[in-house]
């Protein structure tokens, strides 16, 4: 547990110190959300109907930007070799780094999303559920993304490849995240069923993704 905390703290310190990675992610989120009304025209009804979808897609794209770097630095400077030799198992290493990624990327994006909801005329009753779905769904993004990051670590054009690999795998998270918000803002129904499925996806990702990512990392350090 000591090693887990140390690694988590170090990754957060690096995210903070290694020059504005969080800032770039948030900036990208803002830019993508801004591009849509500019391309669709300021039809407020249309925008409020697609707001949840736009916010979720933009969040995924923004998160992908930083996911590519998740293990890259540690591979390049030899840290990954040392991490692979214990005392924390590689599954634990992935979990610590995934959790750090969520704290340094998923959480700031979630905090920023309601502000961008204003730009998209998201209906008032949608804000609470938007924040809730993003809190519940972003761990799945970080942990599933960790699998993709571990797989593409030594690939050429790793960043582009990561996007190709990850976007299909993010479909369930995206669908149930958006469905929860739409259930409240459009259908005036219950958001509970899709929201619970989203929570289940996140929990499954937190448990299973470290296994797959650690298996990939074992091959990467050979």
């Amino acid at each position: 547990m000591m090693a887990f905390r140390q690694l988590l703290a170090r990754d957060l310190a690096l995210a903070w110190k290694e020059g504005g990675a969080v800032g770039i992610t948030l900036g990208f989120f803002l830019v993508v959300v801004t591009m849509l009304p500019l391309s669709l025209g300021p039809d407020l009804n249309l925008l409020s109907r697609i707001a949840a979808g736009v916010l979720w897609v933009a969040l995924l794209l923004a998160a992908l930007l930083s996911l590519g770097r998740l293990f890259e630095g540690d591979l390049e400077d030899g840290t990954l070799d040392v991490l692979a030799m214990g005392p924390l198992s590689l599954e634990g290493v992935v979990a610590a780094k995934g959790f750090a990624h969520w704290l340094s990327t998923g959480l700031p994006l979630t905090v920023m999303a309601p502000l961008l909801g204003l730009l998209l005329n998201l209906p008032g009753e949608g804000y609470l559920i938007l924040i809730a779905t993003m809190l519940a769904g972003t761990p799945a993004v970080s942990f599933l993304g960790a699998v993709g990051a571990a797989l593409t670590l030594r690939a050429r054009r790793g960043g582009l490849l990561l996007a190709l690999l990850m976007l299909p795998l993010f479909v369930p998270t995206l669908v149930f995240g958006i469905a929860s918000v739409n259930a409240v803002t459009i259908e005036a129904g219950s958001a509970l069923p899709p929201f619970l499925i989203l929570v289940a996806i996140s929990l499954a990702a937190i448990v299973l993704a470290p296994l797959a990512a650690a298996a990939a990392l074992r091959f990467q350090v050979r």
Binding site: R10, L14, D77, G78, M85, P87
Partner: peptide
């Protein structure tokens, strides 16, 4: 396991330049 009883010091230093 053996790996947890070994220190490995290779060509790369496992040093973070931002810290």
């Amino acid at each position: 396991p053996v790996r947890e009883q070994c220190h490995y010091f290779g060509h790369r230093n496992a040093v973070k330049s931002a810290l």
